[in-house]
Each structure stands twice: as C-alpha cells, then as structure tokens.
Amino acid sequence: MLANLTSIESLFYLAGLVAVIASLKVVTGHNTVHALLYLVVSLLAVAVCFYLMGAPFAAGLEVIVYAGAILVLFVFAVLMFGLGKDETTNAPKHKGLANMLGAMLLAFALLVEIIVIINNADMQQNLQATVISSKTVGIMLYGPYLLAVEIASFLLLSGLLAGYHYAKPDVTGGPL
C-alpha cells in the first residue's frame, strides 16, 4: 500500500492537484500580489509534473524562465501600477502569516514531494529510464527546428521593441 502511495503516478496526481488548486486561487483572487504568489506555486507544481514526466530540462526552464523571469516582470509591473498612491493607506491590515498560509502549504507539499522523489532510489532509476536528454532537445532545436528558433528570436526582439515603445514616458525629444 505504501509503495503504491509513493509511486510516480500518485506523486504526479498530487502535483497536478496542487497546480489546479493554485490556478483556481489565481483566477478567483482579489489581491494582485496574493494571486501572483499562487501563480508561482502553480508554475512550480507544473514544473514538478514535468520532472515526473521525464523532462527535467523543461522543469528547470519552467522554474527559471516562468517562475523566475516572467513572474518578476509581473511583480515589477504591479509595483509600477501603485506609483503615485500612498501605499501605506491602501495596504491591508497586518494579519501575520495568514495571508500566505495557503500558498505556503501548497509549496510545502511540493517540497515534500521533491524530497520523496530524491530519496527514493527505485523511483530515480525509473525516472532515469524515461528521461529525454537535453542534448537530444538541443540537436532538434538546431536541426529541423532551426527556422522556428530564428522566428522565436525575432519574436523576442519585437517584444523588446514593443515593450520599450509602449512603456516609455510621453515626453519626446532627447536621446532614446
């Protein structure tokens, strides 16, 4: 029974459940920063799912790019929206850890899951057998998908230009 409980499948279902709950909290949230906190938890849960599906490279990318870069962009934008207002008057009443307790519990479940996976040699062996190496992915990217990579680089460049153009101050003149 215990072996059944700690199989790769059940861990996957647990991570999926965490992702669904966190996503629901994002969609139904009222406070922007709390919703962002739950969004981080949702992305981390999806990263654990990727790891359990035998894609550790994609899981690392999910944590670094999604939870690391895109979410930081969100946080910066939220900080900019509050400019000009007095934050101390709008700030919620201090409620200790109660605000982030749910997100912390979900993240703790993910942490326990990761520890269980790393400690279980059987499961590690099982995962290693199904892994698709990042080397294969790289060969694919610069082989048949080379054109797609070039288009993605153009997309990122246009995103950079558009972001700069829309977010710059209205005052014209002066250097770029």
Partner: peptide, 18 residues
C-alpha cells in the same frame, strides 16, 4: 515547450507595457 516559453515571455512584456 521552449517555443511556447519564448512566446509567453514576449507576450507578457508587450502586455504589461500596454
């Protein structure tokens, strides 16, 4: 997935600037 990742990054940059 990597292509989706770049798409998401570009989309968020433009969207947040707007």
């Amino acid at each position: 997935f990597i292509l989706i990742l770049t798409l998401a990054a570009a989309e968020v940059a433009v969207g947040l600037a707007l």
